[in-house]
Write a protein that binds this DNA or RNA. Structure first.
Lengths: 385, 385
DNA sequence: TTGTTATGTTCCCATCGAGAACAAAATCAG
DNA sequence: CTGATTTTGTTCTCGATGGGAACATAACAA
């Protein structure tokens, strides 16, 4: 496991550091600022940028003068530089987007699908339509755990152990895949509400609840890359059996399925999202029963967050999906029950609970991030020159 | 946040890599093997080792010839090299040990204490008695969470927000502190049952249960460095109120306190450990009620482990304290209830549940590790030359 | 117009690790 | 006992890297 050794590796390393700084920056910065940021000399910065410009990875544009001093250049993505494609594969739709250095994604195409793995061929064709020389890596977000990075398991589509290696063949560009909830969390950590946190958590609340632990801007993946099933811990004392095969899961009390069940429906089939939206509408309009349902959902959410905060000590927790509405309408309920679940000695410093700012674009943004993580690696950059 | 830039940093980096390899190795290795291991040339290895020998960080001793080829030298700790001291501060005793490069710890002194923070002065004196020129860093393990690394909270000693910065003053050597359960886990990850795992968990079961998530050989610490209170999640549906201020904690059903409660005692005062030992003895002798108590404890343990495995996907889980006996006597119960708590699709690949191999020396060994982590840093090594 | 300030550019230099060639010290084959 | 083989140590040269100093350049300010 060699990390770095030769002087050439040192150069590559500094090039990657520079590219990563550009990618992660909120605002573009100048070459001189880059030198200060990386702690290198102006001469070295000039050499690095020159090589990256020649490799069509960075581009320099004149910066408007901002005070005294010789005018300098802004470091921006190269117009002919590599791009990452990102795919968000949902229950019955898919979206393809393109993202350059810096992360800004533009949607290219989207479509519906028939809930069979044939959608992968459809996506492959869309990628071929839009992908040119500049396409470097494809990041794909799907729901459901992906064991060891290739065995996909989406229960609500009836996909059981779908073999991704068979569906994503040699005619695909270099492709990296991950779970949508985890990628939504990664997006928040890199470009959203969790930016800058050392330890944080993100939860996506849809039919049920899934999430990820974010450490230093990266998502914890686990030994088989199926970490994040926080919704399948018994955090709320439910006596019910969950579809996952366990009894008492947190997800039984949080999310659209819990709302469906409360109003007498059978979870797991179809119209849960519409019902959830309707409950939200009615609760906002003052309907007592809908309000009570929301209270229960928010209370169960908060109770679980408190328990998880005891164990993992996050600085902040962001929510997406239904969670955004729950925060908007029932923040006090969530926070009160979170505090109740927190050990007494930590109640004066509870985790910040916040709505994600990347929103519904989370999985797509996260997929672009993991694709760019491949590009911004020493191996890839060295290959490119 | 500069990671590395100059060529001098490159050299330091490789020196640290070499020292870390020696520290982490199970068996000593030769200079030629080191070159292969780090992916550097024999000439470079010779230069690195020479400098480290002059800095009294490494020592070369003739290796007994093992086949053909010119005889070489074994890389071993320098006899005058730096040592780390490690302290394990327990409820009413403390132990001081010394650990050299490679981790082998030898006990220096131990004593009892009066359960007041005055024990820190006592420890300071013992350190001064044994510490000479070679003492570089002190690692200290205590029970209880240590918020932000300096505010100690040990409920069963009645220490509430004890300020470590006041107790560990400028007359101490460079000191690093952490929680005993976390350090026990770190010890397993570095030198015990979890060695080589990418994602693993460790739990120490005493009066209650505490643990840590281990990622790539390091312990997850959390935003306020108080992560690891897994025992205070409601994983077993207990209706009771816990001393921590929360209702339903896992710890209410696992550990010595749970046994005390089951046999009519009041947890939190004294003799829980003796009772636990007696229950173990009686259960092993065939006593039905003691056996049932053990069953319940093991079942609750397994149930929680399964839930946590869903969320964090560890490759292996090691246990210390009472957990060792529980594995020895009730492995099937633990594993069965763990499987029951695992989502169905992961039951064919459950986490390996194993007794820790570092044993009672876990906190001390872990304390030595965090002390050596300071020594094996580029900053420290560069300072030493 | 002239001084100030921030940046770009060009040079030289110390250091680092790679690689090749050779030397040294053991084992193995006869 | 001798010579071939194997593995490692040692020495030397070389290209590349980043630091630093000196100078050039282009804006602003007085």
């Amino acid at each position: 496991m060699p990390q770095t050794m030769t002087s050439a590796d040192l150069r590559t390393r500094n090039q990657v550091r520079l590219l990563r700084a550009v990618h992660d920056a909120v605002e573009p910065f100048t070459r001189a600022e880059a030198a200060r940021l990386l702690g290198i000399g102006r001469n070295t910065a000039a050499a690095l940028v020159g090589e990256l410009e020649r490799a069509r990875l960075l581009h320099e544009v004149p910066a408007e003068p901002g005070g005294r001093g010789r005018p300098t250049t802004l470091l921006v993505p190269h117009p002919e530089g590599p791009v990452a494609f990102a795919v968000d594969l949902r229950e019955d739709t898919w979206t393809l987007a393109s993202a350059g250095l810096g992360g800004g994604a533009t949607e290219l195409e989207s479509g519906e699908h028939d809930r069979t793995p044939a959608v992968f061929a459809e996506i492959r064709e869309a990628v071929a339509r839009h992908g040119g020389e500049r396409l470097a890596v494809l990041g794909l977000a799907t729901s459901g755990p992906i064991r060891d990075g290739h065995r996909l398991h989406v229960s609500h589509l009836g996909w059981d152990e779908v073999e991704l290696d068979d569906l994503i063949g040699a005619d695909w560009p270099r492709t990296v895949v991950d779970n949508d909830a985890r990628l939504a969390g990664l997006a928040e950590a890199r470009r959203g509400a969790l930016r800058g946190t050392g330890t944080a958590m993100h939860f996506h609340i849809d039919f049920d609840i899934g999430g990820t632990l974010l450490l230093g801007g990266d998502a914890q993946r686990g030994a088989h890359r199926i970490a994040g099933e926080f919704g399948h811990m018994p955090l709320t004392g439910s006596p019910l059996a969950c579809m996952c095969g366990v009894r008492g899961c947190w997800s039984l009390d949080v999310g659209a399925n819990a709302l469906v069940r409360r109003f007498g429906g059978t979870p797991g089939h179809g119209a849960g999202r519409e019902l959830a939206q309707e409950v939200l509408r009615r609760a906002e309009a003052g309907d007592a029963e809908a309000g009570a349902a929301l209270d229960e959902n928010a209370a169960a959410l908060g109770r679980g967050l408190g328990a998880l905060a005891n164990a993992l000590d996050p600085e902040a927790i962001s929510l997406s999906g239904l969670g955004v509405e729950l925060i908007r309408l029932r923040r006090e309920v969530i926070e009160a029950h979170c505090a109740e679940g927190l050990m007494a000695f930590r109640r004066d410093e509870p985790p910040r609970i916040t709505a994600g700012t990347v929103g519904a674009a989370g999985p797509l943004t996260g997929a672009a991030e993991i694709a760019w993580d491949v590009i911004l690696s020493p191996e890839w950059v060295r290959e490119r020159l």
